[in-house]
Design a protein around this nucleic acid. Sequence first.
DNA 1: AATATGTTTGTGACTACTCACTAACTAACA
DNA 2: TGTTAGTTAGTGAGTAGTCACAAACATATT
Lengths: 198, 198
Amino acid sequence: MRKSAELRKAEIVATVLDLADGIGPDRVTTGAVASQIGVTQAALFRHFPTKDALWQAVAEHVAEGLALAWDGALNLGDGPLVRLRALIAAQFAQIAATPALPMLLFSRELNVTNAELRATFHGRLTTFHGLLATEIRTAQEAGVLRGDMPANDAAVLLTSLVQGVAIRWALGARDFDLRAEGLRLFDVQCRLLAAEGK
Amino acid sequence: MRKSAELRKAEIVATVLDLADGIGPDRVTTGAVASQIGVTQAALFRHFPTKDALWQAVAEHVAEGLALAWDGALNLGDGPLVRLRALIAAQFAQIAATPALPMLLFSRELNVTNAELRATFHGRLTTFHGLLATEIRTAQEAGVLRGDMPANDAAVLLTSLVQGVAIRWALGARDFDLRAEGLRLFDVQCRLLAAEGK
DNA sequence: AATATGTTTGTGACTACTCACTAACTAACA
DNA sequence: TGTTAGTTAGTGAGTAGTCACAAACATATT
């Protein structure tokens, strides 16, 4: 079945993510992607010059999704705590929607083969950390979070929370709702971080 | 140079860990291990029937190291907070001593190829979580940690902290002291968890 | 002490297979 | 009819694992 290059490219990227989830990022071969789609292996190289370029397209797709989700969370406009919670929720939602993401962060592809890919994801993590720190600082100044700790440290605790829960979810049988469990633990941590006056 | 099987096996396991750190777990080929040691590729198969068996030996080596470190931490005998901190410190020290560990957790080898390997590491994580939860519960009963939260949740927050810091260390340029930075953040989190009366 | 016998460790050449990638050709679409 | 998505058939570089054989070692016997 013949498709436009644009559609085919999108289909290939989606299939890579799907397969990365199913069999692990480093098991995603061009042959596996092609046969899942229903074209020959060589056909992939009409759309992407190398496999690295294909992975780069995947990374950009994922990064766009993250950026969009964070934007949505920040535009809630309510208090800093609401935005903070929404950021965490968005992160969990994105991970759940792209379950290959945690594994991808540690794949050979990202860490060894493709330095550009690594830079893309590392930058995203830094951005997320920055967004959290900003909201935390605002909350501290508003007196809703205790001010006796650096906002950066609190942000590290929260990103760690996300990663820790995501890892438990990914390494286990994914036998719990990532977003729900993640937000539950966020609320626990948030109570610890809250200013004592309330 | 001819060596006893015991020595050679240990050398092979150590080399696998070294290479896993250097080039990524999934780039560790039998040929690479052999040439690093200075024997032929075929020689490896005199000591391990398959590559999977070799990885299993690596996993057992690492697991032994973790168990030993935890034992040492628990035998400090002082209060629960001291033991808790020592557990965390031991974990960071082990990760720093085996820098391939975080990547190993997400390697193709562990997640796809070798189900037994996966079980080994997953069991260890569960054990660690259990040790933390026990100490936290003791500390809560002694009134040094606030009791208005499940010990299990607090343990998740702490294991997440370890994983989060380890990830930042592994994905970045390892440009900070893992143990020191980890313990610093542990102390921050610990202050949040501390009972308000003191 | 010297030699014979079996065992253990290692080699070199090989197999069967997988992978990313290429070149020449073909069929659908505008 | 020209452009573009796709195919068929390959290449070269790995990869785990096998196998016949050799050299080092251990031990028992003379």
